[in-house]
Design a binder for these strands. Sequence first.
RNA 1: GGGGACGUAGCUCAAUCGGUUAGAGUACCGGCCUGUCACGCCGGGGGUUGCGGGUUCAAGUCCCGUCGUCCUCGCCA
Length: 605
Amino acid sequence: MNTTPWLRSHTCGELRAEHVGQRVVLNGWVDARRNHGGIFFVDLRDRYGKTQVTLSAEIAETVRFSAEWVLAVEGTVVRREPMNVNPDRPTGEIDVRAEKVTVLSESRIPPFEVLDQLDTAVETRLRHRYIDLRRAPLQRNLLHRSRFISAMRRAFEAQDFAEVETPILTRATPEGARDYLVPSRVHPGEFYALPQSPQIFKQLLMVAGMDRYFQVARCFRDEDLRADRQPEFTQLDMEMSFVDEERIFAVWEAVLVRTFREAMGVELTIPFPRLTWDECMDRYGVDKPDTRFGLELVDIAAWAKTAEFPVFQEALASGGRTLGLVVPGGGELLSRKDITALEELAKNFGAKGLAWWKASAEGGAGPLARFAAGTKAAELMQVAGAKEGDLLLCAAGKASQARRVLGELRVHLGRKLGLVKPGWNLLWVTHFPMFEYDEEAGRWFSAHHPFTAPVGDLSEIPADLGVMRSRAYDLVMNGWELGSGSIRIHRQDVQARVFQLLGISAEEQSAKFGFLLEALAHGAPPHGGFAVGLDRIVALTLGLDSIRDVVAFPKTASASDLLCEAPSKVAPSQLAEVHVALAGRALLEAGKSDAGTAAARPPSP
RNA sequence: GGGGACGUAGCUCAAUCGGUUAGAGUACCGGCCUGUCACGCCGGGGGUUGCGGGUUCAAGUCCCGUCGUCCUCGCCA
């Protein structure tokens, strides 16, 4: 027996011709209304779809409702006349002829319309996110995300991985991103930090013999945001013992094949290509190449070393590189204005300028033309692999700089010229540099993190730490970094040596990482792991540029939550409880708002 | 932290060189209409031009500051 008479018998997405004649109850939101006097149409919407409800004039008189009100409609499924069928909707062959309409909930006039195509400002949409999320595209995004994560869980479980939760309140990390801090009430003057990732805990789980761990883990980093970065984000994190790189790649390839198949019906080809970091940088200029198109970088040093172009000569003399990018047919395809825009783009990425040449045996055109006269023209075309009419873009300078500029131009041109072929191009980038030099700090830092194992043993340390390679790897898809990981250091002596190379003293080591070093001294298995940015992979597989569209309640570029207005000021008593006092700008702001409250208060009698 | 764009009705936008009562579409409300499906037609209500200050006879428009949103460089082991 149905004791609640208005409860739905079907959803708004499931009624078909086969249901004709049945008495049904639908629950949902009022979408569009069309009043024709003698007959009244309402589209009733829920997560599953929209169904057209018809109200006779008599029934319509018994009830009043407006956009986004929540209704229960009791009625009969009727077949539409052939001429009235709406082929654009799954429910378009039927109507529900209402016999009784109950208002379950009223609604204010909505701040914006619930339309699939909407051009309302992000700010307004975030402020009323619960309305925005009613829209079919966002519901589709969240459902896709749910299916995606669910398939990944099944894939890990099928390979004996155990899901383990790790703390959200943890210890501040000395290196890496800025931490979000949480003051302790019980320990005056001390703070927890929110985890940037479960890195250390998952290594401890390996020492603990968990063998295969995974987790859908929330991570927090207090850094400036972008369309593809939120202050809190989700990783599919994993770690496993007694492995090398290939074992880990094999696990992830199996996981991703299954996930793409179950969540998207896409068959991925495995194994994914492997590319060392050095080869990747040589060919694409970036460590996350979009391999859906060619346009690879070329080295033009063979030409430049005898060309009388001072900029190139200097670059080569000081150990730098002279690199080029050949745009096939670019001499025709790209206007002078386009090239000016490319020059601007190059400057944006730190280039002093952009040398270019419209390739021609006759000498061509552009800033490089006067250095490519006579036999030097044919020579340059040969060295760069350019044909008559191609456009050659060149950058010279430090390897990192020249690569970056051309790498960014490559991606820009690939899109602009429509060279990007549709598809899911996944690849592993391996052998990252072990260390990076920070000019400002004047010291070496770990390129990945300080627990990453080096390639080879540490019996010989090169004079230039920059040439050392690590067992870190990234997974890249269509020009996005999906995730990263590494084989870890599992020997205490190796870990201590790496800390030493980083200039971290023995005292500092034990103060900051003592517990990890101690764990490594208690029988740590060789282990390694990987983590994928879930927000990114979900956004990417939906063809979206912004991860905001796959996060239910995202924050703005200034890390504000416009819906609940976080962060917010708290009462002085609450601050006192956690032993925190405001200082600097925060104190001034608080003073201003106090003064404001005092002024607004009525004068005391 | 730096650079750029934007902020006018609930929403999306317009408003000439600084000049009369700040307009349109849509949403909302009322009326008409029995087959629409973003229905149509007629009518109506709706404004602190983000906020504060300045210049001017006069500011949505010009200047300064500030707040917010978006993009971007730095940053994000």
